[in-house]
Design a protein around this nucleic acid. Sequence first.
RNA 1: CGGGGUGUGGUGUAACGGCUAACAUUCUGGUUUUGGGUACCAGCGACUCUGGGUUCGAAUCCCAGCACCCCGACCA
Length: 484
Amino acid sequence: MKNNDEKEVQNPITKRDEDFSEWYHDVIKEAGLAEYSPVKGCMVILPHGYAIWEIIQKVLDDKFKATGVENAYFPLFIPEKFLTKEKDHVEGFAPEVAVVTHAGDKELEEKLVVRPTSETIMYDTFSRWIRSYRDLPLLINQWANVVRWEMRTRMFLRTTEFLWQEGHTVHSTQEEADERARMMLDIYRDFSENFMAIPVITGVKTESEKFAGALRTYTCETMMQDGKALQYATSHNLGDNFAKAFDITFLDENNETKHAWQTSWGLSTRSIGALIMSHSDDSGLVLPPKMAPIQVVIVPVIPKEWDKDMVMEEVKSVYDLLSDYGIRAKIDDRDFLSVGEKYYHWERKGVPLRIEIGPKDIANGKFVAVRRDNGDKNRIDFSGADESVKKLLSEIQDTLLKNAQDRIKENTIFVDNWDEFEKAIESNKFVMAHWDGTKETEDEIKEKTGATIRCVPFSVEEEKGKCVYSGKESGTRVLFAKAY
RNA sequence: CGGGGUGUGGUGUAACGGCUAACAUUCUGGUUUUGGGUACCAGCGACUCUGGGUUCGAAUCCCAGCACCCCGACCA
C-alpha cells in the first residue's frame, strides 16, 4: 500500500462526544441498519438491522415458550369502542392513535383504530375463550407492528410504526399474575444482560409513569453512553382492571364467578436503539457477538494473483470449520475492493471479529483476528481455530457487558440535597435520591430539571431519609434521570 | 404546538447580486493495484425546496408557503 500517509480519508461518522444525537444517526446510516421513509416518523429497517431483530425474536421466542407461552396473531384494526372500555387506557392512548374512517370512498359506520397496543382486541376475545379455572392460565404472545402517532420521532427509539412482541396472560389469582409479570421482567433482564450486553436496573414505575390501565408497571431501565436513561422493556400487572372492562370471568373450584387477573409485557425495536447507543464508538456500530448477524468476517489477503487459489482454499476451510461450530461467519471475497476498504466496511457494520488470512499467515500456521471492541490483534493457530474464535467472541461479549456495567456504576450517584441533585441531573447522571412519594413533587422536579423517576429499583434497601425536593419524610431512594 | 436552525447533483460542501453553478465523494466503463480507504483515464448526474417580489441581471436580497433537523411538551 502506498500513499496512506498523504491521503487522509475522512471518517464519515460524527464524534460521539461532540454531538451524540448526530453520531447516533451516523452510526445507523453507516452500518446500514435503517433509514427514514417518505412517511414522516416511519422507518425503513434495512436487512442488516432486520437481521438483528430476527435474532432478538428467536432468542426471546425460545425463552417465552420455555415458560409455556404460545404465539398467536390478532388483527391490526380495533373497533374504536373497544379502546374506550377501560377508562385509564383510553385516556393514555387517545392522543396518539391513528383512526381509519373510510374504506375506499365509503365512510365507515364504526371507526377503526390502528392498534397502538392490543390489550383491548385480545381481551374481548379472551372473554369468550375463558369459562373455567381450568382454562387458566392463558399465556399468549404476538409479534406485531403497532402505530402510535407521537409528536417527535427518533430512529428505533420512537417511530410512528414499530415492531414488537406483546405478551398477554390471564390468571386466576392476583399473586399468580404478579409472579408472571415479574418472571417476564426477569426474562427481559436476562436477555438484556446476557445477550445484548446491556445491564439494566429493574424496578417499579411510579403511579404517573405506569402503563395506562395497569395496576403496577415493572421496567428495565438502562443507561446510554450519554448518560440518559432508556426504558428497555416493560411488564405490567394489569390487576383486574381489564377483566372488569372486558368481562373476563371464570368459574373457580367452588363454582363461583370470579374476575381474572392479567399481565401484559413487551419489548420493541427500541431495544435495537439501546444496542446501538450502548456499545458503538466513533468508528461506527459495535455489536455484541450474540446479537451479531455476522459474528466473524474473513478477509482473504491476496498480494499476488498466483496466491489466490491457495489463500481461498485456506479461507474456505476456516469458514467451514467455524460454521460447523455454530459461528456465524462470512467471507468477503469481493475482488474490486482493497483489504483496507473491507476493514472499514465491516467495522462500521459492527462485526465483532475480523479474520485476515494471507500467504504469510498460511506459512506461519497462524492467522490474524482483530477485535472490533478494542482493536486488539490476536494470532490464532489454524488448528483448533473454532474453539479459539469462540473463546474470543465470548471475551468480547463479556468485555462489552463489563464496560457498560462500569459506565452505569461510575455515573450513578447518591444525592441528598437539591443543589447537588440539579447539578447531577444537568450532567446526565443517574441519581439515587429520596422522594416523598407525591405526584406534585415528581411533577415539579420534572418541570425544574427535566428528570423523571425512572423507577423504584428492586435493589434498593429501605432507608429513612428526607425528600431531596420537599424535605418531607421518605422511606426509600428512587432513581431519577433524564430519559429518551 | 412553542423556541432556534437549515434547504444547491445520490452524499458532503463552495460560489462578492454578474461568464456554461464549482469541488470532493459516490456511481458507470476501463487500466492499474490488493497485509488499513491504490493511482490514473473517460463518463453519468442539479430548471440551486415551491410560489411571488426587488433588479438590466437572483443560488445569493425581500415576503409567503412547504420540508427537514435540533431543543422543549407527549411517549416504548
